[in-house]
Design a protein around this nucleic acid. Sequence first.
RNA 1: GCGGGCGUGAUGGAACUGGUAGACAUACAGGACUUAAAAUCCUGAGGCCUUGUGCCGUGCGGGUUCGAGUCCCGCCGCCCGCACCA
Length: 889
Amino acid sequence: MTLAANRGEGPPRIEGFLSGEILSMATERYNPRIAEPRWQKAWDEAKLFEASNDDPRDKYYVLEMFPYPSGRIHIGHTRNYTMGDVVARYKRARGYNVLHPMGWDAFGMPAENAAMQNKVHPKDWTYQNIATMREQLKLMGLSIDWTREFATCDVDYYHRQQMLFVDFLGKGLVGRKTSKVNWDPVDQTVLANEQVIDGCGWRSGAPVEQRELAQWFFKISDYSQDLLDAIDHLDEWPDKVRLMQRNWIGRSEGLQIRWRIEQAGAPEGESELEVYTTRPDTLFGASFMAIAADHPLAKKAAEGNPQLAAFCDECRRMGTSVAALETAEKKGFDTGIKVVHPFDDNWLLPVYVANFVLMDYGTGAIFGCPSGDQRDLDFANKYGLPVVAVVMPEDGDAKTFQITEEAYVDDGVMINSRFLDGMKPKKAFDEVASRLEEVDLDGRPQAERKVQFRLRDWGMSRQRYWGCPIPVIHCASCGAVPVPKADLPVKLPDDIDFEKPGNPLDRHPSWGDANCPNCGAKAQRETDTMDTFVDSSWYFARFTAPWQDEPTDRAAANDWLPVDQYIGGIEHAILHLLYSRFFARAMHKTGHLDIDEPFKGLFTQGMVVHETYRSSDGRWLDPTEVRIEGHDASRKAFDRATGEEATIGSLEKMSKSKRNTIGPEDITQSYGADTARWFMLSDSPPERDVEWTDKGAEGAHRFVQRIWRLVAGGAEICRDAGSASGDSALRRAAHKTLKAVGEDFERLAFNKAIARVHELVNDIVPMIDKAQSDSERACACEALQILVQLIAPVMPHLAEECWAELGNDSMVAQANWPKFDPSLVSENEVTLPVQINGKKRGELTIARDADQGAVEDAVLELDFVQSVLAGNAPRKIIVVPQRIVNVVA
RNA sequence: GCGGGCGUGAUGGAACUGGUAGACAUACAGGACUUAAAAUCCUGAGGCCUUGUGCCGUGCGGGUUCGAGUCCCGCCGCCCGCACCA
């Protein structure tokens, strides 16, 4: 068969391919439903994707954020895994020893919800979901080393996590402290801040209470400075994520100042109030102090003051509702207590309890400088407190400059500030700091420079069943004692009941019974389990040796880590990535690793979105329930069931609630995995959202078939072709594309790589058609081989099919990435655009290495240049070598 | 409020450090093949007019430059993150 025969002049065309009527006849069209399983089996049998820990080649570790086994893989997952797979396959072809594993982030609430709603055991529910999703994933043809697969709910995994916990405890990296938590009184559990919506539990809808509870904390704040500094070196991370982490850690430099409390009216035993400020320069603009409702001083003052106590209660209640904070009025209550200004014994300032002061930042107390802070100004105006301007613009007039409604927050010059007058605020800051450091107050300096962080310790106790048990035993005399490593794992009990809300482990008849490992006395097992973020904070390290008895095989972990390319959603920019960075440090300190940063390269991919549809009565409609007519502005959707017109809604992340999901098996059934993979990487840059459209998928599938026709037709040409040599347009096209696509894959610019492959195919089809002589056919054959290798990372099944068709004995998945010939990539002649006064007026073709003078001479010979110049000499000629020429007339 | 990003044909998007704006794809239109449709192949296409070696054109208004989608200043719009952080 010739290529021409394949373009409509020839043999019978096969129809009904998509409806599956002619599976057995599909010799002409490429049939992914036959080819894909066949090649997946071949890869499996050849164990091509199993990574060895003793491979001398350079390593490359590519990892996509592992999924939560919710029940089904959705298309967003497959985009993520396709990107990782392209990188894995490309790097393998480049000769790296590639680790590309997969696992399951398998603990968490949904399994318990399913247990409560459907009477399924969380374990059964989870493992069934994993089985389903593994099958779905395998349909995508991902080059994953499945021998390393694990789920975080496997006893083998959480056993090692408990070992890590015990080691962390030994090094003081985890501890227990009492803190305020969001408590859901109906579900009887702690809720994370994100799980509190409008002050109510996200599941129960009950108003959330603040409770003081003893919790386990990872001491991530010990690493605040280190985690911040190291961000500078994460140069293969998106700037956005680095910035988000910097802001989250939130370093600020300031002064901690102790203010003497005026003894008249002070609660007994209270002699000073400590305040943290980043603006000590504004100290002479201070007009009040404000403390949090939970501040010890407030509590003491409230003891003898019922009205104040009531106000503090009100503040506490409000503290739970994030939404209320935005609109809440700034309120205060004068405690009657006064403090003395650090630089003036006769200057007394009132102490208020204020609803906007947070107990867990700084010292829970501030001084208010109304002229320099809008919130303080509003507060001062409300309670009739003085407003003294202390900073004014450089060009202001100190005599007339006043603040009334709007605070002045910019840089400027100090006024009304005694010895600071005339200084810049920065200098005033230092001046105040160094003076107060010298003042002795009860044997200590009155002020100290201090760095504050916004980052809080990571509270990881959860009152849940389906999580990793915290391996601790509470003994009346010995306190919280870790379970000895020999006694690990602390296994979750299987006999568990979900009839009542709350933590099922708490009411299990015997699970909590234990003896103290220290003294042997009867003791109580910890019933809290770990936050599921713990599970995902070190799984990447476990993948390097999942069979190991210890949490890691240190040598293997050090070899493989850091992950060279990590790929996942931007929604994990803070928590997961920050926790993992902390865990690497903690594992380093406890001897499980020798590195601090787990992820060298990070890529955050966009989502797959889809239109939403709503029926006339407002129900969400699934895409399969909708018929689309027309296009562009006149596009309309109709409800298939009723025939009524449906509303086409906005593009949304695919979600069950909006019913706009597309399942991967729908796609692999109709078009095959390669089409889905190709489509998801086409057009949209990988960091941006991509819209799933049927038309787009069809387009991708047409290209699959186009490649197949091209290769199947060209295979004849290849049969007895020699090796390509010399120079030809065909070779040039192929080698240029080879170079460019390699560069694109390195940069994860999949959409550009795909555009170039399209271009190559458009270019070479007519040339291959015309190839007659032996040397032409050799060039054509080489171009086809290169083309197949270029598409192999993205469309691996089609590529294998084509590779075999071209007469290769081995698989393309085993082939080395071809090398481009540099002499074919650069041209001897270049065509330069010629501008006159910055507008393009023509072109000039000239030797590539022509020097400035030669180009200038040639340009002046051009007709259109001469006619513009009309015999005059040009004012200037700008030659940018190999780019452009601009004649300034 | 603070911080960051984005704005290019009908649509998704190209254009690497300032150097031919609109690659590639989707949708569309015309043609070939077909009894017909699908598939395939070919062709066309930013806008405007006075059809030229023309003018305008990358959200809007200015600026820098021989030259600006790209850099600077000021607006407008959209998106994301943080949010009483002292």
